[in-house]
């Protein structure tokens, strides 16, 4: 093994040596500059701009005492091509190559300035794009927010119902709640939305897109929150229920006054998680004819082929999730205030 490895090493080093040698030889050769320029011109007129740049870059920097004109010409032509390719960084770098050798070259200086100008107008174009997309996106975002808020209102109530059903001693209710969780946690939300919006009409039940979306999201998140709430209720010390009962409270009173209020703090982190996921899951309802943030961004992107729309949508989602995270942290702190000594 060792022998073969060192054998390979030897072959590689030999090849390297040869490569370096030929490199020096090539440098020593005088390049036929005229033919290079001609070749580049041909490629450029054929529309092969990349090829033209690759040809021009072969023009070497002048040796000391040599005429620098061909080098400067080649680089400026390169910079122009790069500029037309919108490769502003590369064009700038090429101009700087010239300025490095000839700091006073006015052509390179001027071109550099105009690249800078172009850069600024690009920012302007970005701002223009933003102004163009934002109204549409914000309208979509408003719908997303509405969906999120509706689901946030429905799912904790649904979740609480499912949780209480799961821990009740009334068998049919327990079974029903188990079934709901099994069904809605076990199938994709996308499928559920499709089923409600496209599937149910076949059975004669038709919903408007918004209603279908809220039903789908509401049921799905109720199922998830149901398990979270059940866990939180069951994690409250059993003695609390006994103490409440010993005072003479009914099961309902004990739950409402004693047990459930003690779950708020421990509910906040997982529920916050779910709601953050919810904000992003609303994007799925764009598939059932809902025009919300994702759908708006998609439309803008497809109309203008402009990724600014997607970037802006991402930023709006981030703003939503950030604000909600912040709010949940505050609520969690307040909910647990009694634990602070």
């Amino acid at each position: 093994m060792r022998i073969s490895l060192s054998g390979i090493g030897r072959v590689v080093s030999t090849l390297l040596f040869l490569w370096v040698l030929t490199g020096f030889a090539a440098a020593g050769q005088t390049v036929d500059l005229d033919s290079l320029f001609r070749q580049a011109g041909d490629l450029q007129s054929e529309g092969n701009l990349q090829g033209a740049v690759e040809t021009l870059v072969k023009v070497p920097p002048p040796a000391p005492g040599q005429d620098g004109e061909p080098f400067v010409r080649s680089r400026m032509q390169m910079a122009r091509i790069q500029f037309s390719l919108k490769e502003l960084d590369k064009a700038q770098a090429t101009c700087r190559q010239v300025l490095a050798l000839y700091p006073d070259n006015s052509e390179a200086k001027n071109f550099l300035a105009s690249i800078e100008q172009e850069r600024k107008s690009r920012l302007g174009a970005f701002i223009d794009d933003c102004l163009r997309f934002l109204p549409v996106l914000l309208k979509g975002a408003l719908m997303t927010l509405l969906l999120v808020l509706c689901t946030m209102l429905i799912s904790p109530l649904g979740g609480l119902f499912i949780a209480l059903g799961r821990i009740s001693h009334f068998r049919p209710l327990t079974a029903f709640c188990w079934l709901v969780i099994w069904l809605f946690r076990g199938t994709p939300l996308l499928l559920q939305l499709f089923f409600i919006y496209y599937g149910l009409p076949a059975l004669g039940i038709t919903f408007r897109p918004f209603t279908a979306a809220v039903i789908g999201l509401g049921l799905n998140y109720s199922a998830y929150l149901g398990e979270i709430i059940r866990g939180a209720i069951q994690s409250v010390d059993h003695g609390q229920m006994e103490a409440a009962k010993a005072l003479g409270m009914t099961y309902r009173q004990a739950m409402r006054r004693i047990i459930i209020p003690q779950t708020y703090k421990r509910l906040m982190p997982p529920i916050g998680n779910e709601f953050i996921a919810l904000i992003k899951d609303t994007a799925l309802v764009s598939t059932i004819a809902m025009v919300e943030l994702m759908r708006s961004a998609d439309q803008m992107f497809n109309t203008y082929f402009n990724i600014t729309a997607l970037i802006l949508a991402a930023i709006i989602y981030l703003v939503f999730t950030t604000v909600f995270t912040f709010i949940f942290e505050k609520i969690e702190y307040r909910a647990g205030i009694y634990e602070h000594r």
Partner: peptide
């Protein structure tokens, strides 16, 4: 009760 079981949130 032995372990008091006061309601901690009140």
């Amino acid at each position: 009760f032995q372990h008091f079981h006061l309601f901690p949130h009140m």
